[in-house]
């Protein structure tokens, strides 16, 4: 059984459609990464799946329960970590965890066991008596995760859990997710980070309220829309990225180009050879360049799909 399955899920705020006929399915035990620009509808979908917003159209099944009518059943069984840190800053780490444990109706031996497990998993032991407001960003997120996980949910919605925390803390948090995932917990994670998306089992990309890509990272990279017939992708490494980028953009055989640090990724006509490109760069005054064919990155995928849609409009 799929942990989440939506069909034509549509959610409106008044006349504005925030989620437009979205079909999704998330398998049990997988980590599903949900990406999309700001305001594309990620948070809205999560709220709807937890029963906080009523779908205007379509259906959403979460752990087999209908999100429109069985919100109470769903809430009892899923964990939710909201986009903004939303624990009680004036309560200690321990008090926050106890509060959520209480709210989920944990008591007696089970309560104690879960508290111990959550503390052990998140390594929050040394901070138990500290006020949540005085924790650093990474530890706050760990606490939020511990609270969202205290009732042993089978499915967790994490809305940008790694926003604004440092790379090490980010990696630690993901290690935690994998550990839980290994225990069979399903994750629905939104993020703006491509490296995180690459680590997900499957990813979805939502743009202007519509789900425009859905599949494993490799499937997405192989999408025909991403690599249209008669095109190829190459990477140019140079120290003068911005100037070389401008030059390349003006070449007729270049379909699209993006800068990644010291690299430029080109989507270009297949029949034009790498030597031709190298020559153009040399003529433009860029002598020291390295060229090589590449497979598209997830970012390439999303940029290409987004641009294609922009052209349509």
């Amino acid at each position: 059984m799929a942990a989440i399955k939506t069909k034509d899920l549509t959610i409106k705020y008044g006349a504005f459609t925030a989620v437009d006929h979205v079909d999704l399915s998330v398998e049990e035990g997988e980590i599903f990464g949900f990406l999309g620009p700001n305001g594309s509808g990620k948070t809205t979908i999560i709220k709807a799946l937890c029963g906080l917003l009523k779908p205007a159209e379509g259906t959403g099944l979460v752990l087999g329960y209908d999100c429109a009518t069985q919100a109470a059943e769903i809430r009892q069984r899923v964990g939710y970590m909201s986009q903004n840190f939303s624990l009680y800053q004036d309560l200690t780490v321990n008090e926050n965890m106890e509060f959520y444990a209480g709210v989920y109706g944990l008591h007696g031996k089970y309560f104690k066991r879960r508290m111990d497990e959550a503390i052990a998993l998140t390594h929050l032991e040394p901070y138990l008596e500290r006020r949540a407001g005085r924790l650093s960003g990474g530890w706050k997120q760990r606490l939020a995760l511990a609270c969202a996980f205290i009732h042993e949910p089978r499915l967790m919605f994490l809305d940008e859990p790694t926003a604004g925390i440092d790379p090490v803390a980010r990696r630690d948090l993901w290690d935690l997710l994998f550990q839980l995932s290994g225990q069979g917990v399903t994750f629905f994670v939104t993020t703006h980070y491509m490296d995180e998306a690459e680590r997900c089992g499957r990813v979805g990309y939502i743009y202007l309220s519509k789900l425009i890509a859905f599949g494993t990272p490799d499937q997405l990279k192989g999408l025909p829309e991403v690599s249209p017939a008669g095109t190829k992708r190459i990477e140019i490494i140079t120290t003068q990225t911005s100037n070389a980028f401008l030059l390349m953009k003006s070449r007729p055989y270049v379909r699209s180009s993006t800068i990644f640090g010291q690299a430029i990724h080109l989507l270009m006509d297949e029949q034009v050879s790498l030597d031709q490109v190298k020559k153009d760069l040399l003529d433009g005054g860029f002598g020291k360049t390295e060229l090589r064919p590449i497979v598209p990155s997830l970012e390439d995928v999303f940029v290409t799909l987004t641009n294609a849609l922009k052209e349509e409009v």
């Binding site: 009680y88 004036d90 709210v103 109706g105 944990l106 031996k109």
Partner: peptide
């Protein structure tokens, strides 16, 4: 097994009252 127990606990209209009360007392 304990998890199943929890799944079977039904919510009632006052669900959450005690923890909220306790938390609010801590805020104060």
């Amino acid at each position: 097994m304990e998890r199943d127990d929890r799944d079977r606990t039904r919510t009632h209209p006052l669900t959450g009252m005690i923890p909220v009360l306790r938390k609010e007392a801590i805020h104060i």
